[in-house]
């Protein structure tokens, strides 16, 4: 059922997406690139930030609330609460820094296992900064192998050139919609938000204002 609330445009489903990975791999740039096509340098994220985007995938109007987390170790506990009920998780590494790739399996996949409360949540592996091909330290084959091990998709992209940026989020959304339990959650979230139109409208506006 199609719903609308307050001043927001109507949407059919609402999903929560979480961006995680080492500090400096380009999580915030990836998100800003997806939202507004901006490619400027961004200050390091402090704690957590979020942005809201509405798009149409597979004939459905989706509202994505995308949480962008700071990757420093000191912020890990603070951000662990945002894993709760996330339908999609994007694990980001920097193809020019092997350490960020290694930490996906040694650190971040363990965080997902520990804090995620959604057994069906969809994960996607994203290798960023492919525009720096001469500095590449992690091959695509290695990325595919890890993606297979973690049971998720792999996409290589560049926040700077916007290569594959939209595909990351669209592929993730499509995978989420294929899971019946996640589809139900996304639909439920929309119905719930109808009951608080003022709050929802305000949230959307704030989403646009956030730096």
């Amino acid at each position: 059922m199609s719903s609308s609330s307050g001043q927001s445009s109507g949407y059919d489903l609402s999903f929560k997406i979480l961006l995680i990975g080492d500090s400096g791999v380009g999580k915030s740039s990836l998100l800003v690139s997806f939202i507004s096509s901006s490619v400027e340098d961004l200050s390091p994220t402090i704690g957590v930030d979020f942005k809201i985007k509405t798009l149409t995938v597979g004939g459905k109007r989706l509202k994505l609330t995308i949480w962008d987390t700071a990757g420093q170790e000191r912020f890990r506990t603070l951000n662990s609460s945002y894993y709760r009920k996330a339908q999609g998780i994007i694990l980001v590494y920097d193809v020019t820094r092997r350490e960020t790739f290694t930490n996906l399996s040694e650190v971040w996949s363990k965080e997902v296992e520990l804090y995620s409360t959604n057994q069906d949540c969809v994960k996607i592996l994203v290798g960023n900064k492919v525009d720096r091909d001469t500095e590449r330290a992690v091959s695509r084959e290695e990325g595919l192998a890890l993606a297979k091990e973690l049971g998720c998709l792999l996409l290589e992209c560049s926040a700077k050139t916007r290569e594959n940026v939209e595909q990351c989020f669209e592929e993730l959304a499509l995978k989420i919609m294929e899971a019946p339990s996640l589809l139900e959650e996304g639909s439920t979230a929309v119905k719930r938000s109808v009951l608080k139109p003022k709050q929802e409208s305000q949230a959307s506006q704030n989403g646009g204002c956030c730096s």
Binding site: T45, D49, T65, T117
Partner: peptide, 27 residues
């Protein structure tokens, strides 16, 4: 130390206000 109900409240607060206060306070 956040239980599931407080996590939901915190998340709704951040969504409503755009606050990054928790991260800044810790930093």
């Amino acid at each position: 130390l956040l239980t599931e109900d407080l996590i939901r409240e915190t998340e709704e607060f951040v969504l409503r206000t755009g606050s990054v206060g928790a991260g800044c306070s810790q930093l």
